[in-house]
Amino acid sequence: MADINLLPTEITPKGFMVRLAQILRNVATVGLAFFLISGVGIGAFFILTSVEIRSSTTRQDQLKTTVKSLESTEQSLILLKDRVGKVKQVLGADTVSPSVQKAGAIITSFPPDVSPKEIQIGDITKITVTVSDTSELVKFMSALMAANKFKRVDLKGFSFSPTSGYLVSIEMVDK
């Protein structure tokens, strides 16, 4: 059966305007649906993150209580780290101890006829010894060279006295 429209043609919208209105209405419906879905999504996000934040805050409170109970340990750790830093600085300033160990290794192995007279240990190590005869002197110098503990060994003085023997002064610069 054919549609009968009794409205006057001047108050009836044109066909393409009706189609446009229909399209716009559809767009509005889709937009509303999208808007509602987005709203639900955002709401869910807020609820979930709020719950997560709340439970994280509760866990933090428990952790803070544990940290509080370990306060003395924490103090000791902070003190330890501070002191270790200071110890590093102090040990870094110690340039003489390695020379003491090196010089100690040499002077404790003096041959029997080599008598120490004066030893100064610092950035430069100075050793003055008396040696009764040349063979002992050769042994002493050979041992000194073989030790290979110093960067440079300078013979600073060499004299002979009939009563005490040879007086040898050596200066050694650390490696």
Binding site: V87, V90, L91, A93, D94, V96, S97, V100, Q101, G104, I107, T108, S115, P116, K117, E118, I119, Q120, I121, G122
Partner: peptide, 24 residues
Amino acid sequence: VVSFVSQINTVAPIAVPGKIRITS
């Protein structure tokens, strides 16, 4: 004396040797 000198850095508080002079 040499033994004493070589052990100076083994005590606490840390003692950093500066000048050492040994005479015999």
